[in-house]
């Protein structure tokens, strides 16, 4: 799988790596039990700090996307599709909460946001 990171993206580098792994797992490019590159190899490939990749891998492990076995490296965890969907829903909820909070200060209500979402849906169709 090809991972690309950008130093101009305001998202922290480790987060960019985490997100791309998750996307790869969700859309099937990374199938369960696929071995992933070692921390140092990936750091060199991406030209980023070892500690950044380490953090990304730790996060992926904690969230259950990655399994690390001593001596044999890390693998993509065998996750069911429903499990992935649930994880993603949880994340979406967090993102929405922060979106709502940010807009509250400007007097934009949840209903206004729902309105936008509906408009976007219509546009899509």
């Amino acid at each position: 799988m090809y991972i690309s990171i950008s130093h101009h993206n305001p998202q922290p580098l480790y987060q960019q790596i985490v997100d791309q792994f998750k996307e790869g797992i969700a859309d099937g490019r990374l199938s369960p039990n696929t071995p992933v590159p070692s921390i140092r190899v990936l750091a060199k490939e991406l030209r980023v700090s070892v500690i950044t990749v380490k953090r990304a891998y730790t996060e992926l492990e904690q969230e259950g996307y990655l399994i690390t076995k001593p001596a044999s490296g890390s693998f993509i965890a065998p996750l069911e599709h429903t499990q992935l969907q649930q994880n993603q829903l949880k994340e979406a909820k967090e993102q929405l909460i922060s979106l709502i909070n940010r807009n509250k200060a400007f007097g934009i209500s949840i209903d206004d946001l729902i309105q936008i979402l509906k408009e976007l849906e219509e546009q899509d169709e």
Binding site: Y14, R47, V48, S49, I51, T52, R55
Partner: peptide, 23 residues
């Protein structure tokens, strides 16, 4: 430094202002 360092130390006016992992 931001790109490849794992640890960062910042020295200002002969004093160590900051020393920690970059993350």
């Amino acid at each position: 430094v931001e790109q490849i360092a794992d640890y960062v130390a910042i020295i200002i006016k002969g004093r160590l202002a900051l020393f920690d992992t970059k993350e």
